[in-house]
Amino acid sequence: MLTVADVHKKFNPGTFNEVYALRGISMTMAQGEFVTVIGTNGSGKSTLLNAIAGTFLPDSGTIAIAGKDVTRKKDFERAESIARVFQNPFTGTAPQMTIAENLHMARLRGKRHYPRIGLSTKARRFYGGEVRELEMQLEERLDNLIGTLSGGQRQALTLLMAVINQPQVLLLDEHTAALDPKSAVHVIKLTRRFIEQGKLTCLMITHSMQQALDLGDRTIMMHKGTIIDDIPAKEKRAMTVGDMLEKFAELRKTEQLTDDMLAQLRREYA
């Protein structure tokens, strides 16, 4: 469903601030596969996600979705097949507009916006039904502005907006990192349910090793702009958090990880 082949990206090339963010990333995801990504700070996890979403164009390499090359397509052109949820709950919604209007925009994803009243009573009833599935009592508040909602409610809505049209690829960028623990648990529950129900192909960055183990079919580990490990489903099922940290330690021996990096990983994930 998703193919990334030898993608390179340098930011601010030729300047003092040059960052070689992606150094030849290659990966594939099958239809309906759910992959989690972990890695140190600055390892290129978010950059990979942005490259797939089209926030910027890669320097070289190709990206294909469902066999179609989208390497040169802009973000809004890819939005038809790719949906995403950001880490910051404020990024994914328009705060000064109502819940219904936000959902309506997500529903029209990839379609032209004609000057016609599409947000009809019928459409609102549909959105009401969808919102009910979030189990947050938002169905009565369709006309409330997003700005009046909590971070957890917003993130749940952003998730609903991302899956409302059954995207071919769903990208989740540490989407529970900024939430309180209770909301985070709820949003993860919703994530799991939506992906299972829709049999979605999903790439999820996480900051929690436990999440990486619990969720998804396989886990990718990134470091310094490359994929250093790809743990298949079979192996992952048998693993604990301790095992995973040990795996990091093992990688250290091959000198791909420094002591500092390992310390950082332990702090972040354990």
Partner: peptide
């Protein structure tokens, strides 16, 4: 209140979200 009008407002309020939802 039309689709075009809503899209226009989204673009002004949150361009990142607008692009993520396929708005040019």
């Amino acid at each position: 209140a039309t689709d075009l009008g809503i899209a226009m407002r989204v673009t002004g309020h949150n361009p990142v979200m607008a692009a993520a939802n396929g708005i040019n």
